[in-house]
Design a protein around this nucleic acid. Structure first.
Length: 297
DNA sequence: AAAGGAACCTGTTGGC
DNA sequence: TGCCAACAGGTTCCTT
């Protein structure tokens, strides 16, 4: 599921229902996902008050009043599922009685639900079939020193992510720009969907060598990255095989893809004659890339 | 040092 | 219909 826009969407959903509340019960249904959970995780979560949330790249950090932050990564297939525990609970995520109410609090436990957090009003489950996700604890005062966060590149939506910064990171690199943008040390939060979409908007082929981007192409690429991420966040992210939002609602940015998973379809923005030859699907370092060879050079 | 591929998992889909 | 291979939104680790 999750690249930056999806993680941002999920985090906002969690923040809306958990911020300010005490975790009355924390349950772990296994001892690890991609890595072992820290010792005593459930105990350390129980009784803690949730102070707030932060996103860094594709990681969520839930700040607790004991001085720790719960670090959450959704991996490939992770979801957070929030349900009101009773009908009188505040229902900010589904004000018209949406999916969270429809399932009810007596629904059978979901398959692959590895962690459950309960506050007075909400039950939040972490569901991750493929188990590529991660949970860890990190001191809030030193979040960025965590081994997962320490090497990350700039946040693409921050003002400090500029064409000059990207140019410097790409200079001299012999790898295709597709692979470079997936490298979280160069820019943090892009994944397979948004790299393809951003390169389309910038008119750059995913196969072009990264070292040829600095300069005018970086000047096009940086705003394209920011725009596609902002557009997707505004749409609640993309829902492909899984629900994205913690309230069970779907994001709808998948309806606005220009190229991702659209091989052989005509590119919508190529001008009329001769007609667009269609979007290509190629495999780069084991992952699919999608692009319009006429528009992207 | 940098680049590419395998590995970690389960579920779904498409071709025969 | 059934079976099996290929593929899926990520990241680390291990070779070259």
């Amino acid at each position: 599921m999750p690249e930056l826009p999806e993680v941002e969407t999920v985090m906002r959903g969690l923040a809306a229902v958990l911020t300010g509340s005490v975790i009355e019960r924390a349950e772990l249904r296994r001892a690890d996902l991609r890595w072992p959970f820290p010792a005593g995780l459930a105990t350390r979560l129980t009784g803690a008050r949730v102070l707030g949330f932060r996103r860094r790249a594709k990681y969520m950090l839930m700040r607790l009043d004991g001085g720790d932050s719960l670090l959450i990564h959704l991996g490939m297939s992770g979801r957070m599922v929030a349900r009101a525990r009773n009908s009188d609970a505040p229902s900010r995520l589904a004000p018209q009685g949406g999916a969270s109410d429809a399932r009810g609090h007596n629904a059978p436990p979901e398959l692959h639900e590895h962690m459950v957090l309960e506050t007075a009003d909400w039950r939040v489950g972490f569901v991750d079939p493929r188990r590529f996700g991660a949970l860890d604890l990190v001191p809030t005062a030193a979040e960025d020193a965590h081994r997962f966060l320490a090497g990350l590149g700039p946040e693409p939506l921050e003002d400090s992510f500029t064409p000059a910064v990207l140019s410097a990171a790409l200079a001299g690199k012999r790898t295709p720009i597709k692979a470079a943008l997936l490298d979280q040390r160069i820019v943090a939060g892009l994944g397979n969907i948004y790299v393809s979409e951003a390169l389309f908007r910038a008119g750059i082929s995913p196969r072009r060598l990264a070292g040829t981007i600095p300069g005018a192409r970086a000047t096009r690429l940086v705003p394209a990255i920011k725009a596609v991420l902002e557009d997707s966040i505004a749409a609640g992210g993309s829902s492909l095989r899984d629900y994205v939002r913690s309230d069970g609602e779907l994001g709808f940015f998948q309806d606005h893809f220009d190229v991702y998973d659209r091989q052989d379809k005509p590119c919508a923005t190529c001008p009329g004659v001769p007609p667009c030859q269609g979007i290509l699907r190629v495999v780069q370092s084991g992952r699919a890339s999608f692009y319009c060879p006429r528009r992207q050079k």
